[in-house]
Design a protein around this nucleic acid. Structure first.
Lengths: 361, 361
DNA sequence: CTGAAAGCGCTTACAG
DNA sequence: CTGAAAGCGCTTACAG
């Protein structure tokens, strides 16, 4: 019975014996954080040779226990497959790997075994595993005690403003995003540009309206209340995860109300949509009614998910620059870990989105 | 300067002092693997109370060092964002979480810092972190020394046959998959059903051809060599990852040859495609040429990626049952870890795919 | 330039 | 039913 036996790993002491030195010398040569000037070149070389030959890999647990960093970041997301965040997750991991760190992913979607407080459960798990810091990319409308997170892990960088004073975060400039979209549509001759948003009750979303109004003014276009569709009154507009299936449920009925409000009543000739999934759903419904995209109505998305390449017609959208956001977040967290938190007042960092023109506008 | 200080975590000894017992009693009550009969109910209760109150979380590194399992599985994938595998990755993680394990994801896409042998680098990293076992879901055409993996981690479960004798793996029954597709198309009256595959030089892909031919025979349909398109002669047909961008590059020129071969020469009225991405690309090209889907040509995909819901028309496809595969893989690996590898000859497990009918057929 | 030794926080065989 | 103590594999202050 093979059972749980594994080939015993080479230890520091094995190298030391083979090389005929003490283990502390080996430690200095192979894993030493300080300069290695204390060991002779020749010895160091021999030790490295032996280590390579014996396929030595330092025991991570032992180093951790001795107080070294874990070189691990906790990463909180609703789900690693969350279509709104999957590229951010990927980029965060890739950037972490570049500096020899690893991301420990905590999905906050409720699992029966973990119980309802999965967010908090992962905050504890991160503590157990001694992560160096945490990225929180959980949507603001997802449950989870952000204050508890900050208490247990002062080194935390959020994606989007968590609404907690003094928190450090990276956010996409939504005002600029909508201005880009509106300017583009105005330049293409659109006169009645609509805005469709999930909610207007959070600062980050109010920024969209602000950008929308500012750019309409610049373009000399009329500002009518009926050109703005806010999904809030129509019930829970947020994408939900169907627990069993891990698929994101899209609130289809919202699209029905949206078309009624913006197309029928508002008679828009363009819509700046909440995100690419909204955009794709709107395009589908409009095409089914014989409305031509972009001839009759132009559509602009928000995210630049790879879905945007596959809609018919392909979607003009706002790229959220997830790679740039990820780079910024890793840089920030690493700096927090080594140098402490940034000064108050310099804890938020905006990412400038980019317009990607395809065929829906 | 806050620096790298964190709130000191509660230790076992802190609980012991507070509860007025020795740390070994506390260890037995809180983390003991054996029955706790050796400690009185009353003491145990008090200890648990104190632990909860002091927010105790056992130090993972210390337990690991003492020889306990890491409750961590290594997971090798080309990239966590690989569109062909992302749901499998998600499900594997979710299933692992259910039994209180964690998946440590190793992306084998080459990073400059890790060097060209990222597969092997992660095999070593998994050893350092003392994972209990490994899932390998890397595509067969991706580089990486699978034998080295098995040497370092005898407890490994592959997704799809790695072509190594005695390896344990879960695979999708491709023969059954293609038969489902062909039968469905025949039932809808299609007479000239084409098959498009990336390669026929690996057993797993030859299975597609086998299923195709077998079902055509059953349906009494003609078997013509020109109805089979094998992309191999047209150069590197595999999706590639563009390093900088982490986007999957689709081999578009293949589609051109495919249409020429199957539509122009073969005059097919249906195509069973290599996967959903091929299917989506084919649909796009055909629609652009004025060919109607499914009236003129029916298309069936393979994978059931969520993209399949967004093509126009929505894609009829074969669902690969990734959830079921993930459950099987976790079950298998856990059993290997606790009871040793399954007997030779019982090391491969097939997953039966399912036909999902949408509007492209 | 190098070595002997303490200790990180647990687990567990051993002794009462 | 409970405690004293060794030891997992490292790191590092201390002593030569």
């Amino acid at each position: 019975m093979a059972k749980n036996r594994r080939v015993p790993e080479t230890r520091l002491i094995d190298i030391a014996r083979k090389a005929g030195v003490s283990s502390c010398v080996v430690g200095h040569v192979l894993n030493g954080s300080r300069g290695n000037s204390r060991v002779s070149q020749k010895t160091a070389l021999r030790i490295r040779e032996v280590a390579r030959h014996m396929n030595y890999h330092p025991n991570h647990a032992a180093r951790l226990l001795r107080g070294r960093r874990s070189y691990t970041y906790g990463l909180l997301v609703a789900s690693a497959g969350d279509p709104l965040r999957s590229f951010l997750v990927q980029f965060l991991d890739a950037e972490a790997v570049k500096i020899n760190c690893h991301t420990y992913i905590g999905n906050t979607i409720g699992k029966p075994t973990v119980g309802p407080n999965q967010f908090e459960a992962y905050v504890d798990e991160f503590a157990r595993r001694r992560v160096d810091g945490v990225f929180c990319a959980v949507h603001h409308w997802w449950p989870g005690d952000r204050n508890y997170l900050l208490t247990k892990h002062p080194h935390t960088v959020f994606y989007e403003d968590p609404g907690i004073p003094q928190a450090t975060y990276v956010f996409v400039d939504r005002e600029a995003a909508v201005r880009l979209a509106v300017r583009h549509l105005a330049e293409r001759g659109r006169k009645r540009i609509g805005l469709a948003v999930m909610t207007l009750s959070r600062p980050m979303h109010i920024a969209r309206r602000r950008g929308y109004e500012a750019e309409l003014r610049v373009q000399g276009l009329p500002l009518e209340e009926q050109l703005i569709f806010n999904a809030e009154p129509y019930g829970d507009a947020f994408a939900r995860c169907i627990e069993e299936e891990f698929k994101w449920e899209f609130p289809e009925q919202i699209i029905y109300h949206l078309i009624k409000a913006l197309i029928m009543r508002g008679r828009v000739d363009a819509i700046v949509t909440h995100d690419d999934f909204w955009a794709a759903a709107i395009i589908k419904r409009l095409v089914a009614r014989g409305i031509r995209i972009p001839e009759d109505v132009a559509i602009v998305g928000y995210l630049n998910h790879y879905l945007a390449d596959w809609t018919v017609p392909p979607l003009t959208t706002i790229d959220l620059q997830h790679l740039q956001a990820a780079q910024q977040m890793v840089l920030l967290l690493e700096k927090m870990i080594t140098e402490g938190p940034p000064p108050v007042g310099k804890r938020s960092f905006s990412i400038q989105p980019r317009l990607i023109v395809r065929e829906s506008s």
